[in-house]
Structures are given as structure tokens and as C-alpha cells.
Computed example of a mutant assay.
Amino acid sequence: MSDKAEQLKAFERLLIIMDELREQCPWDKKQTMESLRHLTIEEVYELGDAILDKDLDEVKKELGDVLLHIVFYSRIGSETGAFDMADVCHSICDKLVERHPHIYGDVEVDNEDDVKRNWEQLKLKEGKKSVLEGVPKSLPAMVKANRIQDKVSGVGFDWEEPEQVFEKVEEELAELKSEITKGDKDAIESEFGDVLFSMINYARFLKVNPENALERTNKKFIKRFQYLESKSKALKKPLKDMTLSEMDVFWEEAKSL
């Protein structure tokens, strides 16, 4: 692994290349923060995929792509005098020091939960009116629910035991079942949302990331279904012409792979 001096040299190289591209490349010269936004979101999702796949070589590449975007935004910011890369770095450094008084101050903590509580309290002291202000509006609903629950728990709004949360899941399932029998689509959607929210909350108590858990199931389903497709092609029998019993044979085979 490279030492600190080599890491700083590599970062300086990236900054120089970014300057050159911004000044000489027709595509890079044309970009704005708005035009880069959707590309940045895509890069972060690609990084997330690599992390879930445990492909460290791909993680390295995707981190580079994300870092490029950070440098790109900073270069654009410097062109109007709004901020530059140094401002970005100092901003996060200052925040980290301020938010970790147990490291850079005289505050004492016993565990991770104490750190999280202090973090949320410090943000309120900084002028935020709500602990939920920091939850991005555009987050996917499942990720947003997880962040909401995590943040409110940081100020003590939480269940005490996992069993209580599971009882809430059962309660919400019963309410959903009741609305299904009534047939009110709007009420069904509302109760279905409550079930999902309570399940995501339960996942937090189980120390399970719900987004990762669902994506793991997505990947598992894709793998099994593609195995089923391959068997269908080998038999020269389209899936639409196969019975569910025939499909189930190959589905069970896929489970053992």
C-alpha cells in the first residue's frame, strides 16, 4: 500500500487532469452541476452494486468514478469563486472535528449509541430545526425510511426491545388484512406502507440493512430465474408453454446451485 505522500501525489495528479480536461475537452467544458447530477447518482449505485458483490477491484474503480465527480463539482465551483477542492476538504474536516467531541474535546462516550445521540444533538445546536432535516427528499423510499428511523432513534424516540417491534409488525399485518377484506385500494396502500415501514424498523433492531437484504434476494431471484430460462432454452420449450409444476422442478434445482 502507498504511503501518505504517494496518496497526496495521486490526488494532486487527479486535480491537474481535471483542470486540463475542463480547459481542453469539449465534453468536459460543457458540463454543469445539473448535467452531472444524474451521472453522479448512477455512479453511486454502481459503487453500491460492487460493494454488495464483494468485488473489491470493482469497488476501487467505482470509488475513482465517484471521486472524479467530487473533483469535477469542486472545479466548477471554483470557476465562480463559490468554493474549491480545499474548501470542500476543510468543510468536511471541520464538521468531523465538531461532531466528534469525544475525540477532539472532553466529552465521554461509552458506545456507538452515545456517539449517534451526540451527533444528532450537535446538529440541532448548529441550527437545524428538526433531526429529520438531513434526510434527502429524493432518497429511495426504503433507504429514506431506514434513515428516518435511525435518526429519530438517535434522540431517544425508539422501541426498547426487538419483541415490541415485531409485535408492531404483526399489528400492521392484521390491519392490512382487514383493509384487504374491505377492498379500499387507498386504505390498502396506506396499510401496506405501514407494514413495510415496520419491517424496515424491525430490520434495524436485527442489525440488518433492509436495502442490502432486499437486493440480496433480488440477485438470488435473478440467478434462479435465469437458470430456469436456460433450461427452457435447452428443452426448446418456451416458458409460457411450461406448467408451473415443470418450472418448479428447475427452480428447486437452482436453489441447490
Rank of each mutant, 00 (worst) to 15 (best):
D113E: 15
D114Y: 06
V115H: 09
K116D: 14
K116T: 08
K116C: 11
R117D: 12
N118P: 07
W119G: 08
Q121T: 13
K123I: 07
L124Q: 14
L124F: 06
L124V: 06
K125E: 15
G127N: 11
G127T: 09
K129P: 08
V131K: 05
E133H: 07
V135L: 08
V135A: 11
V135K: 13
K137N: 14
S138E: 15
S138W: 13
S138H: 15
S138N: 15
P140M: 01
A141E: 14
M142S: 11
M142C: 10
V143I: 09
V143T: 14
K144G: 15
A145R: 15
N146H: 09
R147N: 13
R147V: 15
G154M: 01
V155L: 07
V155A: 06
G156L: 01
G156V: 00
F157C: 11
F157Y: 14
P162R: 07
Q164A: 08
V165C: 05
V165F: 04
F166C: 02
E167W: 00
E167M: 04
K168D: 01
V169Q: 05
E170H: 06
E171F: 02
E172D: 02
E172Q: 05
L173E: 14
A174K: 14
E175G: 01
L176A: 02
S178W: 01
E179A: 07
I180W: 05
T181K: 15
K182P: 12
K182N: 13
K182E: 15
K182M: 07
G183N: 12
G183E: 08
D184C: 04
D184V: 02
D186I: 06
D186G: 12
D186T: 13
D186F: 06
A187R: 06
I188Y: 01
I188P: 00
E189I: 02
E191Y: 00
E191M: 00
E191G: 00
F192P: 00
G193P: 02
G193H: 00
D194M: 00
M199I: 09
M199P: 02
M199T: 05
I200T: 11
R204E: 08
R204H: 10
R204W: 02
F205I: 04
F205L: 04
L206D: 10
K207L: 10
N212I: 03
A213P: 04
A213H: 08
E215G: 00
R216M: 08
T217L: 10
K220M: 05
F221D: 07
F221P: 00
I222K: 09
K223L: 12
R224M: 12
F225T: 09
F225Q: 11
F225D: 11
Q226I: 04
Q226S: 12
Q226M: 10
E229D: 13
E229R: 09
S230P: 04
K231F: 05
K231D: 08
K233N: 03
A234L: 06
K236N: 10
K236A: 04
K236P: 00
K237F: 03
K237V: 02
P238G: 07
K240A: 15
K240P: 09
D241Y: 04
M242C: 13
E246W: 01
D248A: 12
V249A: 12
V249F: 10
V249I: 14
W251C: 10
E252P: 05
E253W: 02
A254D: 10
